[in-house]
Design a protein around this nucleic acid. Structure first.
Lengths: 106, 106
DNA sequence: TTCAATAGTTCACTATTACTGAACTATTGA
DNA sequence: TCAATAGTTCAGTAATAGTGAACTATTGAA
């Protein structure tokens, strides 16, 4: 049985969030998730580039999860991921909106 | 003769800036620099914690410099560092103010 | 029930990056 | 010219990232 590690809201650190977002792949994953109507996607749906290895993708999701940026829950055979918008906004107001507002590839 | 590498404004990347700030030491260095009246300090003046090795400090300044966050110029025997506020604000509006606005240790 | 397919994780290995002591360069002042 | 100061560079170790291979868990079909 797989158990996911999700830090509580107060354990989310600025350094952790910045480090997690300081990677183009992960930034794109978070953007993809937020562009969904329900903010919810499986890991492969949110894959930033086609050829990427499954284990690499899994690694990026784990980094985002352990930084407190996303919440992962198992639904059937796939994992549904949601950005923890409320938690991040409570802890670091305007941070998400600011960082994700810049155009792709900057 | 020591030559410093400073990226031009358009070469400053979001990932680079976030990675540079995703370290408590470097975040404190940038905060220190901005709290100065002239935003200008030598490396040792901006040292985030007393016992830190000189080479580690130098390393952190280099990361900040190569990310485009600070500009370093030699004045006499010491190096004066300035935060490139205009460049960062032009490239990533509100980013600096947002990130540096959170209380210490978050 | 059993077997195959799918989604994702974990392991193990290599490759890159970070930290720091030691040695070095450059400037100033005695 | 010599010593002191500020900081860099080098080299070695420690930590972190990327990925193929093997594994777990769920679903659906024979």
């Amino acid at each position: 049985m797989v158990q996911f590690v999700h830090p509580s809201r107060e354990d989310i650190t600025l350094a952790g969030v910045l480090a997690a977002l300081a990677d183009p792949m992960r930034l794109r994953i978070v953007k993809s998730l937020l562009e969904q109507s329900n903010d919810c996607m499986s890991c492969t749906e949110a894959m930033p580039c086609p050829g990427m290895a499954k284990s690499t993708l899994s690694h990026h999701f784990r980094v985002l999860r352990e930084a407190g940026l996303i919440q992962t829950s198992k639904q059937g055979v796939e994992h549904r991921n949601v950005v923890r918008v409320a938690d991040i906004n409570a802890r670091f107001p305007r941070l998400l909106k600011t960082i994700l507002g810049y155009p792709e590839g900057t």
